[in-house]
């Protein structure tokens, strides 16, 4: 046996040693249930830009810190490239059939390390019969679904995403707890039984189940899904701020969660992205302008969108100025914790 083969054996053995405790699987088998997946279903309603944020913010942050700490720091400067636009899809379920993106975002990583997120509501009407989030499933999901969604988003916004990232929400409460909570601010106190959101008005740090409820609540908010998107963005900004101040050891502890929830197209150079994003990267978020609810013949209520307005807004937003007026829920970078619905 060659040295290479011995090294391979050891490496595979090391990987195998990461297996979970059989006891957890035994418990699931005896319960006759699939707890991880079903929890995924329940949790995933939160859909969410949040893991999107994790994909976009946390991995680069973690990697860039590893970079600074390691001897390869000298290479850091060589990663500078042009800007990159990534389509981020927050999927509502795990692998099982019927998967749809609940949260759809264009994420632009600027060459200067800035970071802009534009939400495109899942209910945006893309033709008289369909909403944006139907494109994914129609194309068969997976890579094809992501590409089909990217094509529809391009039609709507005029921006072509070079890459995509899909995320399925599975372990959200643990994640928010692991970072030590995320600071958000509510304009009004809420108590919604459906999502379990029971939160006071004003600035607060949410984690665990309450963070999840904060992200899930759609009922009882004047603008439904649009208000929920505003919460996703607020949370994302709070998360980015939190991650920027978190010690590296804690970040590393989150790696497992990120790794199992985030998937990308093969060409996305996460490392390259990592080299240009730093903890100083700001995050600005906004939602495309929409024109109210309309009925569709077979897809229920959709949000009317005017491609001309949307394109204009998108161009201005990605033009690196402040978030333009007219869109939903602009969240500028200036206020640290803007209050939402």
């Amino acid at each position: 046996m060659t040295n290479d083969e011995m090294l391979i054996r050891e490496a595979i053995g090391e990987e195998a040693g990461q297996a979970v405790d059989p006891g957890t699987v035994l418990a699931a088998l005896h319960g006759g249930r699939k707890p991880r997946r079903s929890r995924g279903l329940a949790v995933a309603i939160a859909g969410v830009a949040v893991t999107a944020g994790i994909a976009g913010v946390m991995i680069p942050l973690t990697a860039s810190r590893g970079d600074e700490a390691g001897p390869a720091a000298a290479n850091a400067a060589t990663g500078a490239q042009g800007e990159q636009t990534i389509l981020v899809l927050g999927l509502d379920k795990l692998v099982d059939e019927g998967q749809r993106p609940d949260s759809i975002m264009l994420l632009r990583a600027g060459a200067d390390g800035s970071f802009r997120a534009l939400s495109v509501p899942r209910d945006s009407r893309i033709d008289p019969e369909s909403k944006l989030n139907m494109a994914y499933l129609k194309a068969g999901g997976g890579d094809k679904g992501a590409q089909a969604t990217a094509a529809e988003v391009e039609k709507l916004t005029g921006v072509r995403a070079q890459h995509y990232v899909t995320v399925a929400m599975t372990d959200f409460p643990e994640l928010s707890t692991a970072v030590g909570g995320v600071e958000v601010c509510l304009k009004k106190a809420v108590n919604d039984q459906l999502s379990g959101a029971n939160l006071p008005a004003g600035k607060q740090t949410v984690s665990g189940e309450q963070a999840l409820a904060f992200l899930r609540q759609r009922r009882g908010l004047p603008n439904g899904d649009l208000d929920r998107i505003a919460r996703h963005q607020a949370f994302l900004r709070g998360l980015a701020a939190r991650l920027a101040t978190l010690e590296p050891a804690k970040l590393t502890a989150l790696v497992d969660t990120v790794k199992r929830t985030v998937h990308t197209d093969a060409a996305l150079d996460v490392l390259g992205l990592a080299r240009r994003l730093t903890s100083q990267s700001g995050l600005t978020a906004a939602t495309i302008p929409t024109d109210g609810s309309v009925d569709t013949p077979s897809a229920g209520q959709a949000l009317a969108v005017d491609p001309v307005k949307v394109r204009k807004f998108t161009t201005e937003f990605f033009g690196n100025g402040p978030a333009p007026a007219g869109g939903g829920a602009p969240n500028g970078t200036d206020t640290r914790t803007p209050c939402v619905n």
Binding site: I59, T62, G142, D143, V258, K259, T264, L268
Partner: peptide, 10 residues
């Protein structure tokens, strides 16, 4: 059924 690969973990 999924996107084509994992993000390189940190």
């Amino acid at each position: 059924r999924r996107a084509s690969r994992d993000v390189a973990s940190p």
